[in-house]
């Protein structure tokens, strides 16, 4: 189970350039699903089961892209200036390492700051790939890189870059493996470009026209860090109530809570002051879809060392299987 997460997180796939991740996921899925498609925006769409009399068509989206950087300019001295793909926090940049899609590696650092007590602005940073000049620099404008962040097994907790959202991609595959029969038509979307505005999920949901949809993602478990959000590792999957761009359908929230209670797994309710998920795109498709989101609590989101708890992960798989194999009541 951890091996799958390791494999997924260590594959590079910044927004818009998800093909390597898509291939790894497709390879993994081959023996469990036959109906696999890729749409125009690169979403990997897997259909399982058929809708029977008590069934719905249910869309579940887990984005497979990750944050990264893109070269905007190479200085004469060979230093590489860059822009962000998705939300990259300057505070995690100094000393971090990147690897370009062409294999070039580099370290991130910044110009000498005027005030060392303040985090420099984004434009003060550069990537050093060891080039002596722009002429012999192995990367050029438009090349993309992701952050390096090795997978580490701490026992109950695991650490890696890109647990946002490869942990959810792996979790979705474990769920698919465990679903034997279902009254529903299940449409699983491994979506693209979530980190830059949930674009893959937007078009996928429009094409699919589901009765019900939800996103699988990670959510900041920052309870220990002095914030006023009550979410932490080890306290169960988080059922989203709302975030910056999205308000869950109350029926979907209750359906998820009931599911967790039925199989006696712990759960947390999630309110998020920063960020959003694919759920926002699913909800406003066409004339609207009842929507929600389930999240894996995750510390240090969008840093090269994100952390999740394996109990939460296991409990969320159990909850997913329960939700997707039983009749749905959104009353």
């Amino acid at each position: 189970m951890k091996e799958l997460i390791r494999k997924f997180t260590q594959t590079a796939g910044p927004s818009g350039y998800e093909s390597a991740v898509r291939n790894v996921i497709r390879e993994e899925l081959k023996s469990y699903a036959s109906n696999i498609q890729v749409d125009t925006l690169g979403n990997l769409i897997v259909r399982v089961g058929e809708k029977n009399r008590n069934g719905l068509s249910i869309l579940v989206a887990a984005h497979m892209d990750e944050i990264g950087v893109i070269v905007s300019h190479v200085e004469k001295n060979g230093l590489v200036r860059f822009s962000n793909i998705g939300t990259v926090f300057p505070r995690f940049l100094p000393g971090s390492r990147v690897v370009f899609l062409n294999g070039t590696r580099g370290v991130v650092n910044n110009e000498k700051p005027e005030d060392i007590t303040k985090i420099p602005k984004f434009e003060k940073f550069f990537i050093d790939v060891g080039a002596a000049s722009d002429k012999d620099c192995p990367v050029k404008i438009g090349d993309l890189a992701v952050f390096e962040g090795e997978f580490a097994d701490y026992g109950l907790n695991i650490v890696s870059k890109a647990l946002d959202n490869r942990a959810a991609c792996a979790l979705l595959i474990e769920t698919i493996k465990q679903i034997k029969t279902t009254p529903h038509e299940l449409i699983f979307v491994f979506s693209t470009q979530e980190e830059v505005g949930s674009r893959g999920a937007l078009t996928a949901a429009f094409g699919i026209e589901a009765d019900l949809g939800f996103a699988l993602d990670v959510t900041p478990a920052s309870h220990i860090l002095g914030t006023k959000m009550q979410c932490d590792l080890g306290k169960g999957p988080a059922i989203k109530v709302r975030d910056v761009n999205f308000i869950s359908d109350p029926g979907v929230v209750n359906w998820m809570i009931d599911g967790a209670k039925k199989i006696r797994v712990p759960y947390q309710l999630e309110i998020l002051d920063v960020g959003s998920t694919d759920a926002r795109s699913i909800q406003m498709t066409r004339s609207g879809i009842a929507s929600g989101a389930l999240s894996i609590p995750c510390r240090y989101v969008h840093s090269p060392s994100e952390m999740i708890n394996m109990n939460d992960y296991q409990n969320m798989i159990a909850l997913m299987v329960r939700l997707l194999t039983n009749p749905v009541s959104l009353g």
């Binding site: 308000i247 406003m284 066409r286």
Partner: peptide, 11 residues
């Protein structure tokens, strides 16, 4: 979020 207007005008 403008969700209601987006979906109602579509319908």
């Amino acid at each position: 979020t403008l969700r209601g207007a987006a979906t109602s005008s579509y319908e």
